[in-house]
Design a protein around this nucleic acid. Structure first.
Length: 326
DNA sequence: TCTGGGGTCCTAGGACCC
DNA sequence: TCTGGGGTCCTAGGACCC
């Protein structure tokens, strides 16, 4: 639609593979400074630099050094926030964007914090902001003035406590390297809504293959399989099933997904279809064998994964998905 | 600020167990 | 079969984040 309205538009497709490569390079630079690196996303991480006193003058000097190395080796801008807690460091890095460093000194950090709008707190989105507004809150300072039970009453136990702590500058969370993934999922929003069981099941089969590949590459298997469906009116439903033995093969994922699809009783065409695995376990752990599982099929799945690793996701595809293409 | 993909965490209710 | 407390696990949906 945008191209129709604006024919000279330049459309730049995303290059997720490239982003992952660059991300790995950036994280390697982080780890050359300290092993205590907690990744938040492809382009963001917490680094605990408390152990670097012998090598660097100050945490700010570490931050500057990291920026210099990223610029020199990768040609990329980077923003660094330096502070005494994760939360404040994150706020500082926001202030440093797009290509700078900012430091929140421990002395005076509360004054800085209390002047900020409540939306600067992590976890405060539109819904929570609405709840806070009803209490007359505008700034983080307003939250700090509120009794804890009031916050808990309005926002629930977890959110109430968290905001109460953060507003007081309390954030004892440590930088945790090696956090393991808790779920892996694939989903797609279709250009044209999927109508009819055949189309939806074909899409589910594609998802089962993609999910299986990602699980196997990570060496993980899931005990819970979740199906996600979004209708054209944006209503979004999920159905999940937890089983005794974790699965990572596309046949199991497809079978369970199909069962969940049946339970959903589709009422409209499908705008988005998703399939995910959670309650993840290491795939090398002893696992329950399904009634119909056989060593032959395991070998087939291993071979399929191998072909995909070498030649790409589209190198091998179920015949069922080729039927309409002549 | 009209909706892509991949995640995390929380809540509430129900099943089940001791 | 009922009563009570406490705990875990599962499911579905929602808020939020990058």
């Amino acid at each position: 639609m945008a191209l129709k309205a604006c024919p000279q538009l330049r459309v730049v497709p995303p290059a997720h593979g490239r982003y992952s490569e660059v991300s790995a390079d950036v994280f390697a630079i982080f780890r050359s400074f300290t092993p205590v690196v907690e990744g938040l996303s492809l382009d963001e991480a917490f680094l605990d630099v408390a152990g670097l006193r012998l090598h660097h003058e100050s945490p700010v000097a570490v931050g500057e050094a990291i920026r210099v190395v990223i610029r020199a080796e990768l040609g990329l801008p980077a923003s660094v926030g330096v502070a005494s807690t994760k939360f404040l460091a994150k706020l500082a890095s926001e202030a440093a964007k797009p290509d700078g460093l900012s430091h929140i000194p421990t002395i005076g950090q509360l004054d800085f914090l209390h002047a900020l709008p409540a939306t600067a707190l992590p976890g405060v989105g539109p819904a929570t902001l609405a709840g806070l507004s009803r209490l007359g809150v505008e700034t983080i300072g307003d939250i700090a003035d509120l009794p804890r039970p009031t916050l808990v009453g309005a926002l629930g136990q977890a959110m109430g406590r968290q905001l109460s702590d953060l507003a007081a500058g309390i954030d004892p969370r440590r930088v945790e390297p090696d956090i393991e993934a808790k779920s892996i999922s694939v989903e797609e929003t279709y250009d044209n809504d999927l109508e009819g069981t055949d189309l939806v099941e074909a899409a589910l089969l594609v998802h089962a293959h993609r999910l299986s590949s990602r699980l196997r590459r990570s060496g993980l298997a899931g005990r819970t399989v979740t199906l996600k469906v979004r209708y054209p009116d944006f209503e979004t439903l999920t159905r999940s099933r937890t089983i005794d033995g974790a699965v990572d093969g596309w046949r199991d994922l497809f079978r369970i997904g199909t069962e969940l699809l049946g339970e959903l009783r589709l009422a409209q065409p499908v705008r988005l279809l998703g399939l995910g695995a959670s309650s993840l376990e290491s795939a090398s752990q002893p696992r329950q064998l399904g009634i119909d599982s056989s060593a032959d099929w395991d070998r087939v799945e291993d071979a399929v994964s191998g072909v995909r690793d070498r030649f790409g996701e589209s190198a091998i595809t179920p015949a069922r998905l080729l039927e309409d293409r002549g």
